[in-house]
Structures are given as C-alpha cells and as structure tokens.
Amino acid sequence: MEKKLYTLIVHSENIAGILNQVTTIFTRRQLNIESLNVSASSIKGIHKYTITTCTDEETIIKVTKQIEKRIDVVKANYFTDEQIIFREIALYKIPTAELLASNRIESIISQHNARILEVNETYTVLQKSGTSEETAALYYDLAEIKISQFVRSGRVAITKSHSEKLS
C-alpha cells in the first residue's frame, strides 16, 4: 500500500503517562513519529496531541483505533494534508556579522515572509511559520550565509471540517 504522511489528532484526559501510552502503540508497529506537538486544548482538562507519521492507510486506521482504545484517550482521528490546515514554526540563529556582510538578507526575509525576533551584536534570530517545505526553503537560503542554530516545532493542525469530532 502507498505510504504518505498522516496527521493524527488525539484528545486525551490530562493524566500523567498518556504520551507514553500513545507512543508505545507506534513503537509496537515500528512506526516513526515524524513530529509531535502536545498542548492544552480549548477544553478544560483535555490535552491535544498532533502527531505526524508516514505510513499506509490500513496501518494508520489500526493505529488510530488502538490509540482511541486507551481508556484516557477521548478521541483519535487521522487526516491527510488535504483535510487540514497545518503549520509549523522554525527559529534560525545567524551570526550578526555574517548577516550584515551579506547583501541578500533583506530579500530573503521579505521573500520568505520571515520575522526578526532579536538582533544583538553577536547573533540575530529569525522566525518563520509555514509548512515544513517553506521552513526548509528558508533554511537553505540562510545556510548560504550561515546558520549557527536551527529548530523546528512539530506540526500543529486544524481540521477543515466544521467542528472537531470529540465523541
């Protein structure tokens, strides 16, 4: 079966150890988690996990059911990229001296729609939110100048359906 990137959105009770319960289901099936984001949801006491993984549909269906089977998991749903709006955020640290020496920085920032978060005499930190392709594209452009640190968040996603299925 064809493999593709799926986004799994899991809502759970805020009880210690849920992340472990969720990730062991991936481990058992030898699935890599590509990215993972955990945060409080809009509902009090309910946490939201956004997990991406590359697999086939049959497997993601089974994994989703097995996650939802865990007692403290309220709901698990999987989505393809077409069914959700998603973003990640990336931070880039560039030595200020190199930045100033480059004549491309202004065009890179405006072209990628990046923001400057901090500038001091040693380093400058840029922020870019977008898809992983977009944050990667900025990475490659900045790498030609110099990147001393780089970090990307996990994906966060919102479904295109009217409401979130929670029951």
Binding site: I15, A16, G17, N20, Q21, T24, R28, I71, D72
Partner: peptide
C-alpha cells in the same frame, strides 16, 4: 510499574 504495565493493561494508575 505504571510505565512497565501501561502496554499490558487496560488502565494503570498510581
């Protein structure tokens, strides 16, 4: 024990 038993229980709680 909670970590050890989570995969082999319906629920494990401390």
């Amino acid at each position: 024990l909670v970590s050890i038993t989570q995969p082999i229980t319906k629920w494990s709680y401390q």
